[in-house]
């Protein structure tokens, strides 16, 4: 319990609650259930991107191409739907596109050894370009409107798309916590050399992380298309940086090894909520980015200060431990076995 209370996810969750309540004192409308549901609904795209991103960051990598992967997966999804492919198959195609795109990143990073930021920055350009080439630069519009059913049909007044995303999150969280192989994401990011020396498949784990990042970007693409009903060229644009910000905000360290699905979920939720709150405060939307950036900066700097304090205290404790043992020895209290 203490661990949960001390965790960064919890800190951000509390901040989120405080922010919503704070805004509620100015504008009660924030607390209407429909408002909260709308916030949830508009955050699931970023949540999915952030979860994918989290796998990569867990292993100490970074993937700035997730937005572009979502874009190209959305295009394939749109093509498939317009080509008369049944919805489940079209969804599969979108996710497969994501996995393939992620695998391209993985080949460059894991097999060739290109620094992740360079590799994924390149594929950001490549995927975005390909997306335009495939579509000739125009929006895909005549997507069967049946797809929108997913986002407008509501169960308990919550869109089924939100329910579906929640299910994906919970399944992913359970798998990540329970499957042994999933723990190697943490092991590789926590202590890469240690993981290798213990016989873990480090390259395979990193490969899987990039592929998963692509998979979740593919899912995010499905959500996006279902919510707006067409595929604009801007799909996912700029979202890669938001996804990274969300993950880091939620407590996943770029040094790897810490964080979980909830970090990504809460971080993404927070960033989306900030945008919504601005509306309720009648602050012009133009300030959204400034607030998001300030929050991210404040949280990572605070996190650094806390870590530094904890580390110093540990060093002092160990020094004291050694000294005590020394003093014991000097007093002859230590009895030879």
């Amino acid at each position: 319990m203490m661990r949960i209370l001390k965790s960064r996810e919890f800190l951000v969750l509390v901040l989120l609650g405080v922010m919503i309540l704070g805004v509620a004192t100015v504008n009660r409308a924030v607390l209407y259930p429909i408002t909260l549901i709308n916030i949830l609904n508009s955050s699931i795209f970023l949540i999915l991107l952030a979860i994918g991103q989290m796998f990569v960051i867990l292993t100490r990598g970074i993937d700035v191409s997730v937005g572009a992967i979502a874009g190209i997966a959305a295009v394939i999804f749109g093509f498939a739907l317009n080509g008369g492919v049944p919805l489940p198959l079209a969804m599969l195609a979108a996710m497969l596109t994501g996995v393939l795109a992620g695998a391209v990143n993985a080949v460059g990073v894991v097999l060739v050894g290109i620094p992740p930021i360079i590799m994924t920055l390149s594929t950001l350009g490549i995927f975005r370009g390909l997306m335009r080439v495939l579509t000739g630069g125009s929006w895909i519009e005549q997507v069967p409107q049946s797809i929108k059913a997913m986002s407008v049909t509501r169960v308990l007044s919550v869109p089924i798309l939100v329910w579906a995303t929640a299910a994906v999150i919970i399944v992913a969280a359970i798998l990540l916590a329970r499957i042994k192989a999933a723990r190697s994401f943490y092991a590789v990011g926590d202590n890469r050399e240690g993981a290798y020396l213990l016989g873990l498949n480090v390259a395979g784990t990193e490969f899987a992380a990039y592929a998963l990042s692509g998979l979740f970007a593919g899912m995010a693409a499905i959500v996006f298309v279902a919510q707006i009903g067409f595929v604009p060229m801007q799909t996912g644009q700029g979202q890669e940086l938001k996804a990274i910000a969300a993950v880091v905000l939620g407590g996943v360290s770029l040094m790897g090894g810490t964080g979980n699905i909830w970090s990504a979920v809460i971080g993404a939720l927070f960033l989306t909520t900030v945008d919504s709150m601005m509306i309720f405060l009648h602050v012009p939307g133009s300030w959204n980015n400034a607030v998001a950036g300030a929050v991210l900066l404040a949280v990572v700097v605070a996190d650094y200060l806390i870590r530094r304090t904890v580390r110093n205290r540990q060093l002092v404790l160990r020094a004291a431990e050694l000294r005590r043992a020394d003093a014991d020895a000097a007093l002859g209290r230590e009895v030879a076995p």
Binding site: L241, A245, V248, S286, N288, N289, A290, G293, A294
Partner: peptide, 9 residues
């Protein structure tokens, strides 16, 4: 990344 958002905001 944070200041990218901050400055553009």
């Amino acid at each position: 990344l944070a200041t990218l958002f901050l400055f553009s905001g």
